[in-house]
Simulated assay, not measured.
Amino acid sequence: MSPLKPLRLLLLILVMLVLTACGHVRVQHFDGREPEFSVAEYFQGETWGWGMVQDYRGRITRQFTVYIQGYMDGDVLVLDEDFLFSDGEESKRVWRLKPVDQHCYVGTAHDVVGEGRACNYGDAFHLTYRLKVPIGEREWVFSMDDWMYLQDNQVVFNRTRMRKWGLTLGNITLTFTKQPLANNNQDEAEGFQRSAQ
């Protein structure tokens, strides 16, 4: 093997790493963008979401609805989330987001390893955390890279990358709304509200 080939390979890897670092979007880049997204204000009260999970090939593996009851406990934003999956499985997560300054939070939940870190600038909210996910008989821990974007006073788009071993193994796409459910989803709404009580 020519001694130049390993050198070229190393140079290519370094260029790719530099380009990846340069292309990384930081939540602070959204500062000043409108509409201004206050996570604490938006999620207080009832919020509904509809989402899907896709694997690394883009295939949809699960679909779900989430009902969130949000409230303030002192200065902590509590998000009490009830999930209903299309296969009938139900699960629950309760986030506690504590502010650390004007823009940022630390967050905890029972299935989160350690603390999540989040910041809120302009129309965007960015949360990173490590999530325990049961798969078969094992429990995997994924690094979650979670972005939310306010579209107007009612709608928030949410996109989450699930990473392990440095690879993106799945994506979650989710839409939140403050609007009440349509009549054809009323039974689902009432079922969620009963289970949350």
Rank of each mutant, 00 (worst) to 15 (best):
D146K: 02
L167G: 02
W50M: 09
M144Q: 03
G49I: 05
V39P: 01
N171V: 09
T177R: 06
E89N: 12
S2Q: 11
I13D: 04
D187R: 12
R130S: 12
R96I: 03
D146Q: 02
D146G: 02
F176K: 00
N120I: 04
R161P: 00
T128M: 07
M148N: 01
P180L: 10
Q193T: 06
T173S: 09
L4I: 12
L77D: 00
S143P: 00
M52P: 00
F30M: 07
G74V: 08
R8C: 12
Q151R: 14
N153E: 14
N120C: 11
V156N: 00
L167C: 02
I60V: 15
L127W: 14
G58Y: 06
V156F: 03
T108Q: 09
C22Y: 13
S86V: 06
R57L: 14
W50N: 06
L11I: 07
V106S: 03
Q54H: 05
D187I: 03
K5G: 04
H103M: 07
P180H: 10
L7K: 13
N158A: 07
N171L: 05
Y129M: 05
I172A: 02
I172D: 01
G45M: 02
R161G: 03
T65S: 13
H110A: 15
F192N: 01
R26E: 12
G191P: 02
L12I: 11
R194P: 00
K5T: 11
D123E: 10
T168E: 10
M162P: 01
W140K: 10
T128G: 00
F176A: 01
R8K: 14
G49E: 06
G136I: 06
T20R: 14
R93V: 05
K5R: 13
L10N: 07
R161N: 06
N158M: 06
R163C: 05
K164P: 00
V156Y: 00
L12K: 11
M52W: 04
R26Q: 11
Q186A: 14
Q197G: 14
Q28V: 14
M1I: 09
C104S: 15
G136H: 07
F192G: 01
E89P: 00
H126V: 07
N185P: 00
L181Q: 12
R159Y: 12
E34Q: 15
Q193A: 11
P3C: 08
Q197Y: 04
R96L: 03
E34A: 14
Q179P: 00
K164D: 04
L19S: 12
A40K: 06
I60H: 04
N184M: 05
R62L: 10
N183F: 09
F85L: 13
V66I: 15
Q154E: 12
G107H: 02
L9N: 12
N184T: 04
R194N: 07
V113P: 02
T47H: 02
Q197N: 12
H110R: 14
D152I: 05
Q69L: 10
H29D: 15
D146A: 02
P180Y: 09
N158R: 08
D73G: 07
W140I: 14
T160G: 00
